[in-house]
Amino acid sequence: MIPGASGPLGEADLLRVCDLLYRRTGILVPGNRRSFVERRVLERMRATGAGALPDYMARLRADADGEVQHFVNAFTVNETYFYREAHQLRCLTGSLLGEITAGRAPNDPIRIWSMPCATGEEPYSVAIWLLEHWPTVDAWEIEIVGSDIDTRALAAAEAGRYGARALGRLPPALVSRYFVPEGDGSWRILPELRGSVRFSRRNLVDAVGMAQEGRFDVVFCRNVLIYFDDASRKIAAATLFAALRPGGFLCLGHTESMSRIPSRFRTRRFPEAIVYQRPEDAHE
């Protein structure tokens, strides 16, 4: 029930909320998730003290106390863990980096982007995997960036503190090597490793903001396009294409592909994974 209303979120109210979320993030909420939308809006109304939905919508329009960001945070999904979809990590060191470094001088920068990065497990996984599985890692200047639209998730990523579920796929030896027990059942990633990843707030459908990060050799963008419709997916594909250096690689989630939208990416099938490449001769 919405405070000040005679019943649950009405159809018109639902459309207004979902339209705002879509315009801000590109996320399309399915019609069968009405209870999810109502629950999140109710949480934010209680947090802000709004007595009725019109009051809360007015607060959003004014962006009082940064409420738009809190609203966006309430709808993001941050389900992740270390070494998720490890076949792509194997592809990174087994195939992709060999092509990327061919013809480059030692100490040239190698840029890897996790977008969206949620609470940091993915970019930290990349850092650990490189240390464990790429013998020439010290010969290159590696920059790993994690970005997300959810500011709460980014704060958790920067803190680098994780529970048993997030660490469940990591061998115990790696947990002991790269994490310190906190005493409350959680583990915190070593300061040196936390310092190897830079975090930033970015929106996948904001081309200007995305471009501010520059170009990357590899972009991991996994399990987010499934929440987009074709229009948002097309925008995201364009920003991801622009985010790659010529010859750079895009890794999507195992349930995602570029097949439903026009794409200038080249599909590459490696022994470990299928990835998408920006052709060397591609123009903007």
Score class of each variant (00 low, 15 high):
D148M: 11
S6P: 01
M210W: 00
I142F: 08
R177A: 02
T93Q: 04
E121R: 09
L252N: 11
H70W: 01
V208M: 05
L190N: 03
P116V: 07
E158C: 01
A231C: 10
G247I: 10
L131K: 14
E272Y: 14
L244F: 12
E132L: 12
F36I: 04
E132T: 12
P54L: 15
Q212W: 08
D63V: 01
L204S: 13
T25L: 10
L174K: 12
I112H: 13
I261V: 14
D108A: 15
T239I: 05
S263R: 04
L204R: 11
H87G: 04
W129H: 14
A127V: 07
G7N: 05
E11R: 15
V145W: 09
G185E: 09
E280C: 08
L9T: 01
E143I: 03
R152K: 15
G248I: 03
A58T: 05
P8N: 02
T101I: 07
D206E: 13
Y227P: 11
Y227W: 14
P271V: 10
R202C: 06
E67I: 13
E99L: 08
P30H: 13
F249Y: 15
A207E: 15
A139P: 02
Y81I: 00
L42V: 12
E182H: 01
V41I: 13
M258R: 03
A238Q: 07
E122Y: 03
L15A: 15
V145Q: 07
G51K: 06
V17W: 07
L167C: 13
E143Q: 11
R40V: 04
A159P: 04
L42K: 09
A12P: 00
G94N: 14
D150Q: 03
G49E: 06
R61D: 10
P246Q: 10
A127M: 06
H87C: 01
T93N: 03
I144T: 09
Y227M: 14
I235C: 05
E79W: 02
V218E: 11
T255S: 15
V224C: 04
R90L: 12
G253L: 05
P171V: 00
E122P: 10
S35N: 13
F75M: 09
I128L: 15
F36P: 06
I235P: 00
F249T: 08
Y124D: 02
Y124Q: 02
N32A: 14
A159V: 02
G49M: 08
G26R: 11
R233C: 05
L60I: 00
D108M: 10
I189G: 08
I261S: 02
T80M: 00
R84K: 08
C117S: 03
T255K: 06
A156V: 06
D217M: 03
